[in-house]
């Protein structure tokens, strides 16, 4: 066999490599940093820092914060949990009153998980925080709540009528909230269209990783105070809070995975171009 045909044979074999080997090596690469963390440093990006700074400087004791959720269980463990837990903890530490509501059917259960994971201090349910449950309708529900809270919400998630919850007496419309954040992997603009533009309320996002590109133009134009996205965002927020959690515990594996796929992409392109060159020569 000539050198040229050997080269072509190798590139053809690499191009046709069973993808399962790639995944197998990938799994092995993720397992190592999970079991033996490297402790790689993490750089805090400006959207996360600005979000944190906003809460730190502008949200104080008794300020009402609306947390609208459009989460899903599938994305929950790493995409939403690290960020929403860290941000909720920060808001609790600041003494804010938190109103959780959602248009995602699974959200109320996830909100319960958040309550179980954070240190609420002296905060009491119904006085300092509340879970208002699930309401269908997406942006329409968001809009209805902004215009008249009671047109949408009759009871909390656990069935208690809202007029029996002290903190619900303080809100009638969107104007009664200091800050609104949307926890979502779906249309980002809902929040701006229904709260920022009509009422001028400060808004922020906690989203999945895939939302970064969508959020960025609105962050660059200062229409939102900032955003915290995915596992990376959660890890950054935990770094800012100096309170390591699920986010920071996963960053080594995340970095290893990203590096592996970046290298795989470069390698695959080199193999493809060598193979194409060889085929053209024939």
């Amino acid at each position: 066999m000539t050198e040229k045909s050997e080269k072509q044979d190798l590139t053809t074999r690499l191009e046709r490599l069973d993808a399962r080997y790639v995944y197998l090596f990938f799994a092995a690469l993720l397992i190592i940093p999970i079991v033996v963390p490297f402790g790689l440093p993490i750089l805090v990006t400006s959207p996360t820092r600005d979000f944190y700074d906003y809460v730190e400087k502008n949200v104080g004791k008794g300020d009402r914060v609306l947390i609208w959720g459009t989460m899903t269980t599938g994305w929950w463990p790493t995409e939403y949990r690290p960020s929403i837990v860290a941000v909720s903890q920060h808001l609790f530490n600041r003494g804010a009153k938190l109103y959780y509501i959602s248009d995602g059917a699974e959200d109320p259960l996830l909100v319960d998980t958040v309550f179980g994971m954070i240190d609420k201090g002296p905060a009491k349910y119904g006085v300092d925080y509340v879970s208002l449950g699930y309401y269908a309708g997406g942006e329409v529900a968001l809009s209805a709540f902004a215009k008249d809270v009671y047109s949408l919400v009759k009871t909390d998630y656990y069935g208690t009528p809202v007029d029996q919850l002290p903190m619900m007496k303080e809100v009638k419309t969107a104007k009664d909230f200091k800050f609104v954040m949307h926890v979502t992997g779906s249309p980002a603009e809902w929040l701006l269209r229904q709260y920022k533009t009509p009422y001028g309320i400060d808004c922020g996002w906690v989203g999945s990783s895939g939302m970064v590109g969508i959020y960025m133009p609105y962050y660059a134009s200062r229409q939102v105070v900032g955003f915290v996205c995915g596992l990376r965002g959660g890890a950054e927020y935990e770094t800012l809070m100096k309170r390591p959690g699920i986010g920071l515990a996963s960053t080594d594996a995340m970095s290893a995975g990203h590096l592996y796929f970046a290298l795989i992409m470069i390698f695959a392109n080199i193999v493809y171009y060598i193979g194409r060159k060889e085929r053209k020569k024939q």
Binding site: L30, I34, G74, W75, P77, T78, E79, G185, S208, S209, G210, M211, V212, G213, C229, G230, L231, R232, S250, A253, M254, G257, H258, F261
Partner: peptide, 12 residues
């Protein structure tokens, strides 16, 4: 970023 989003659940 979407890829990162798919990788993270696997880590979990």
């Amino acid at each position: 970023w979407a890829f990162a989003g798919r990788l993270n659940p696997l880590i979990a």
